[in-house]
Design a binder for these strands. Structure first.
Lengths: 141, 141
DNA sequence: GTATATGCAAAACTTTTGCATCCTT
DNA sequence: AAGGATGCAAAAGTTTTGCATATAC
């Protein structure tokens, strides 16, 4: 299983070092797909790995540059990292419980292209975060 | 002119103090509508005001709570503040020159409501940032 | 063996907080 | 006069950087 990650990393032009393999594994297997650098660092420490927070940031930055990972800047100035599995999507964020729902809507994508075109922009990227209260929290509150 | 701002501030339940008036003036008159706390602080210092950066943050936070100002978390983890003049809008950001174009598109707004509803969310807020290259930069590059 | 990556500690940034003093009402 | 607001300095939180050591190829 580690040899698979080796391949993934090498394809991305990165040496297959232990911290990189562990971080990649964690991102792939963790239930919560959106993690802060601190989350990842703590999880690795808890798992008995000897890793530095600085390395986590360095690795995540490299992963982002290599397109393996997407970095989001959520409200509150917090960054979360998410494995990029090729399929673009946007996010619904529950401001009460923190739940994140991913979705992708072709109509929204298309309309954004039209808006950008109208203003003379070539879209490189976009992010849409919809903040609200999820069903569960609505019932609880 | 200062007395007008007094009214605005009092309406918002805030005492009309000098730093608040100056910051409000700056947000209203500055060409660039999106400013960081640091930008505002520097502009006030340059204008000869004796103000602390902490006060700028405090005032902006109060303005945000009072609905006078909107805070955005852009890529890079940087916060920018913008006068809230009541009309919701989204942003096109040029990743080359930093230009920001505001727009509002009813179709996008409507579609977001539909998507949120489908997932059981009640929308409190949303932000859509489209990152790309503006017309001017496309011609230059 | 060589170059790159790592861990640790220290630094750089942004934002917040404590506290004595000042200003608005 | 009284309470809230301010400036300064120090603290807190996140992310980056320097450097000697360890690791992958």
């Amino acid at each position: 299983m580690i040899s698979e990650k080796n391949q993934d990393l090498k394809k991305a032009g990165l040496k297959a070092t232990l911290p990189r393999i562990r971080i990649l594994q964690l991102l792939e297997t963790n239930k919560q797909r959106h993690l802060t650098a601190e989350d990842i660092y703590k999880a690795l420490i808890d798992a008995g790995e000897n890793v530095g927070l600085a390395t986590v940031y360095r690795v995540l930055t490299q992963f982002e540059a290599a397109g393996l990972v997407t970095r989001h800047y959520f409200e509150g100035g917090l960054s979360v990292f998410e494995l990029d599995e090729g399929s673009h999507h946007d996010h619904l964020v529950c401001t009460n419980c923190g739940k994140i729902v991913e979705f992708c809507d072709d109509e929204l994508e298309l309309r954004q292209q039209q808006v950008a075109k109208k203003h003379g922009f070539t879209i490189a990227d976009h992010c849409l975060y919809i903040y609200g209260i999820c069903r569960d929290c609505q019932n609880k509150l």
